[in-house]
């Protein structure tokens, strides 16, 4: 339905200007002036508080404030002073504008953004003329070689970024774990015997290296393990996976197979591992199968055994890459 032929209500025009008190009453105007001055002076007081706090309040004083709790006195009063100093300059300026500055609304005309037809035509003519003078249309050799070099010159800055990092190679598939590498506690770097872990317990584990003081975060981010002990008969694993466990102890990568957070929570009663990042939940007896959340894969399991001295060691490297997926990852 079109309303074109139906006449709309008429525009009554801009309403009459309503004068404020201060516009015609000298006393009201003076009062407003005093109010603005008081606001500005409050700001000055704020700066005084700021300076006082900076110089005279010691760095180690804490005071108790209801609701806020214990507060660092220096930072609190610095902040309050600063806030007062800034806020009241603004409040003063706005009050000034509202009470004393001219408040008559004015009307300005708009013009359509589009240029006039003559201007447009003139522009096109100029461009045509100038482009014609350059003669690109005729000199196609120049045109093509210029396009080629412009296209190629863009490659250089991209190439320069090449040294941002090494190529991935095979490193994502590798960890420190290999046959015979001892499992040590994190923190503490102590070797572990199966007896150290009761049924129901969980241990956070890293591979033993020569200089544990300087373990790099890169290797920690791939090596970290969770060691969990349940009763051996509770496992529901195939024979091969079962042979990777030792007397009910099973080792999983602690790096979430979703996006790499630390899978740090173990619920003893349900035997579930939980990643707090997006709540992927892994079921320990079935080999860390995903039973909830966005992760699409179980946590990789590391085969373990004990060495001659009775310490837990890796029986083999991980059989797959740990951590989040990537394009080249083997299934």
């Amino acid at each position: 339905m079109s309303n074109k032929e139906l006449e709309p209500l008429q525009d009554p025009g801009l309403p009459a200007h309503a004068h404020r008190k201060a516009d015609h009453d000298e006393a009201a105007a003076n009062r407003a002036e005093r109010q603005v001055a008081i606001l500005f002076l409050l700001s000055a007081l704020g700066t005084v508080l700021f300076i006082y706090s900076y110089i005279f309040i010691e760095n180690n004083i804490y005071i108790y404030i209801p609701i806020l709790g214990n507060q660092h006195a220096q930072q609190l009063f610095l902040g309050l002073g600063f806030a007062i100093a800034l806020f009241f300059i603004g409040a003063g300026a706005v009050h000034w504008a509202k009470t004393l500055m001219s408040d008559t609304e004015v009307i300005a005309e708009r013009h359509e953004m589009r240029s006039s037809d003559e201007d447009r035509a003139a522009l096109i003519a100029t461009v045509k003329e100038e482009v014609g003078a350059v003669g690109l249309g005729r000199r196609s050799l120049i045109k093509r070689s210029l396009a080629l070099s412009l296209g190629l010159v863009g490659i250089s800055p991209l190439l320069l970024l090449r040294d941002l990092g090494p190529l991935p190679g095979d490193v994502l598939n590798q960890t420190t774990w290999a046959e015979g590498v001892h499992l040590v506690t994190d923190p503490g770097n102590r070797r572990l015997r199966p007896e150290d872990l009761e049924v129901g317990a969980v241990a956070h584990v890293l591979p033993e290296i020569e200089d544990p003081e300087h373990r790099s975060l890169n290797s920690i981010a791939k090596d970290a393990l969770l060691l969990i002990r349940i009763r051996p008969e509770e496992f529901r694993l195939d024979a091969e996976r079962l042979s990777w466990t030792y007397q009910g102890i099973i080792a999983f990568s602690k790096i979430c197979s979703h996006m790499g957070c630390a899978v740090a929570l173990y619920e003893q009663t349900t035997k579930h591992l939980l990643c707090p990042c997006h709540q992927s939940t892994f079921d320990v007896p079935t080999g860390a199968k995903v039973i909830f959340g966005p992760s699409a894969r179980p946590l990789p399991q590391l085969a373990i055994k004990v060495d001659d001295a009775g310490y837990l060691v890796a029986a083999a490297p991980f059989n797959q890459a740990v951590g989040p997926s990537f394009w080249e990852r083997k299934k």
Partner: peptide
């Protein structure tokens, strides 16, 4: 005046 004042209010 209003806009300038408002900057200070937001900062405050």
């Amino acid at each position: 005046a209003k806009a300038g004042g408002f900057l200070f209010i937001v900062f405050g």
